[in-house]
Structures are given as C-alpha cells and as structure tokens.
Amino acid sequence: MAVQAGIRMIQSGAHRCVLVAGVEKQSDTTTTADSMLSYVDADFEAPAGFDFVDTMALMHARYLQVHGVPEDAVAAFAVADRWYARRNPVAVDAGRPELTTADVLGSGWVSKPITRAACGRACDGSSAVVLVAAEDAPGAPVIAGIAQATGPNGLAAKFGFPGYDGDIVRALPTALAAESAYRQAGIDAQDIDVAQVHDCFSIMGSLHLEALGVFPAGKAALAVRAGETALDGRCPVNTDGGRIGLGHPTGTTGINVVVESVRQLRREAGERQVRDPEVAVCQSMGGNNATSAVAVLRREPGGA
C-alpha cells in the first residue's frame, strides 16, 4: 500500500522520484503479546484471548474441512519456503537444512492445527524501493498494475459479509485486488511467471495463491506439495523464502515482496533465479486477512 501511495505521487505529477522504505524493529518496540494482539478485533477477539495465530488456525481448520485436503499438503508450503530460504543469504533460514512435511507437522502445536514450523518468523528488517516514471528509467521493470481491497477484520464477521459466500476459506480482498491489478496490467493468472504471497502461516500462502487465481479453489496446497511452486514448477512462489523462510518483518513485508519481484525480473536472484520471468505478481496482507494489496510487475522488452 505504501508502494501504491508512492506511485500515486508520481502519477499526480507532484514528484519525479519517490523512495518507499519499510522498517520493522519488533525486537524493541513491543512485547510479542502486543504485536500478536494488534491484528485481531480489539473489542471482541483480543480481550477474549485470541491472537492472529488463533484466527488463522481456524482458517486452516476450515480449509482442511471444506476441501478435504490432507494436513501434509498445507505443511508443504513451509517446506517449499525453506528450499528457497536456505539459498537466500539474507533469509533467517539461510543455510539451514531442508525441511520435510513430517518436520513441519511434528514441530509442536501453537494453535492446533498450526505448528511452530508453519509460522512466519517475526524479526527485524527493512527494505526499500525507488520509484520513477517509466520514461525516466527506460528498460527498468515496470509496475503494470497495483490495487488494494479491504474486507471486515473480525473473523466471524466475514461469514455474513457480502461477497464471502458465508465462509472464511476465500481470501476475498486478495481476489478483488488481483482482479483490478490484472485488469490494469492486461494479464490473467495464467501469465504469471513468479509470485510472492503473504504466507504468514502455511495456510495463508495457499489461500492467497487461490485468490490470485494461480490455482483453483482447494487445489493450491496440493499443487505446492506436488512441486508446482518450486523453481522448476509451473509458477514458482515465494522465491526469497517467504514469511516462513525469509522472515516476517511485518512493517516492511509489503515492500519486500516488490524487491524480490524486481530481483527476479532483473534476473539477479542467483541460485533462486526463475527461468526468464516476464511477469511477476506480489501480494501482501494486513490484519485477519482483512486487507490485501496486489501488484503486477513486468520486465520491459530488452530491459535489465
């Protein structure tokens, strides 16, 4: 969303060059309890004892229940993230050994059915992008579409909210934002060569992939398990290791997904480089799956 604000500044003609930076220093500004409680509904969820692991555990449980998907398929997202993260020198999991789905499932319950290894890794971090008008930087990757959408934050309130079809297994804000961003860019989900999604927990990665249209509803977790998001798969996902492998410095995650997309389009990702990507999509979420931003980036012909 900060990137979107930066783009609007340039489009408005008020500025020619905008630096968008995100910073997170969770380690000294809040207690873990505070940061965990600040995402959920402040009147009826946080005081009742629910943090965002709990609300996402319900989305996880509901996904298993509605789609009849086995637990190890959802866990496969964390395994895939680790594969990329161990090859990313700035990831919290850089150089760590491969994970298996059994490791993920056996890592201890946080909020059943979410296990420790299926959680995004709270950490400090920062990232930044420099935006200029396309004509001022010929050949640079362009942001071809960007949009954001918001729904209710209260988890239970989504059940009766228009558009949700009475359920929480759909990341509706992501789907709405993706529709708009794809329209601006003139692409559809089949054109995506590499995607970055907000996998603050393994289940959320699958929900967002489905909302982006990369996989049909109920199929994302199975596709991840089958290797379709691996480097040689149909659509590589979270090539920097994602929130689970790279780390989740929440204040800058939304910018970091743009950074990784640009890196891929410039073909500077080294071992993690996707083969000849032309279109990169990145997505970031806030709250209880309440708000989501989607951007489509494209490599300029002959660009670097």
């Binding site: 229940q65 319950w109 909020s111 979410i114």
Partner: peptide
C-alpha cells in the same frame, strides 16, 4: 459449531 481449533499457547493475560 462451524469449525474449531485448539489454543496451545495462551497469551499474556491468559
């Protein structure tokens, strides 16, 4: 009940 989960890590205050 629509769907349920189980909290194994109660927060501060709980």
């Amino acid at each position: 009940v629509v769907c349920a989960a189980e909290d194994r890590t109660p927060l501060a205050g709980h």
